[in-house]
Amino acid sequence: MAQHTTRLVPDKPARPALLSAEGLRYLLARPSTREALVAYVFLTPFFIFFIVFVLRAIVQAGYMSLHDWKVLGTTQKFIGLQNYTELLNDDVWWIALKNTAVFAALTVAGTTALSLGLALILRRNLRGTNFFRSAFYAPSILSVGIVAICWGWLMNTDFGVINYALRSLGLRPINWTGDAAVVIPALSLVTIWWGFGFPMLIMLAGLQNIPEQLYEAARIDGANPRQVFWYITLPLLRPTLLFVTVTGFIAHFQVFGQPYFMTNSGGPGRASYTVILYLYEAAWEAFRMGFASSVAFTLAIILMIITLIQFFFIGRRVEY
């Protein structure tokens, strides 16, 4: 058998020096190296897009926000934090921020109440639940323009059917999109109609994840429906509720289409002017790209604080 050696265990090949052709071949032949190479090939397309349109963009936005950036300029003037101080001293910015925060808070409150109520009803699995679920989610698939055009006509002051209904009931008609005191709640109402289906579906899934035994145990202990809601449903739904309210708040904070369509970009006056409208006009109407970048970064910081609050709360998940 063995022709020239009697050793039973074959020699492990000696590891060659790394920086040689031999060493490279050895390294490439290793399964772990091959796996890593395959992984990098798999990742390459994603990282090309990620580096160009995400990482580079974020870094460049930060860089631009420190400059007086002219769209067609070849050299850009470094001005430190001046864009940020200008922003913080601009009354219009604070109006936009306040409008946006009020809009987001109203919309989230309304959406959460409505979608929780409907999810609780649908959870009872009445006949036709699938139909109702599909019907209630339907507005969410529409684009903002469709929603705004349809509602704009319903809310028309002189010819709108809502004011017609109010007058018929003997109430005063409302100047929905033309009255500074009403316009934000009006946009909020439209947005609730548009978007309540999404949190409703998520809360429905959350409710279905609550173990049935808990309800049985409560029933045996003689709890009434209100107690069941406050002491079982609500605490166990807390992670879902937090997810829905915080992601909703962030999403509605970025409102753009509704005032763009319905109030002629923020009217009357500045009553429905929002943060993204401010950003849009700074960048694409005034063409102040550096200043607009500082707006984007300030918005990012605000949203990050909200996200951190979310992590802080959801981190303390309820166990059951």
């Binding site: 160009v52 974020i58 460049q60 936005a61 631009m64 960048a283 918005l299 949203l303 990050m304």
Partner: peptide, 14 residues
């Protein structure tokens, strides 16, 4: 963590 609006302007320029 960073909202899409931050990349809006640099991506427009590129």
């Amino acid at each position: 963590m960073i909202p899409g609006q931050v990349t809006l302007i640099p991506n427009y320029l590129v």
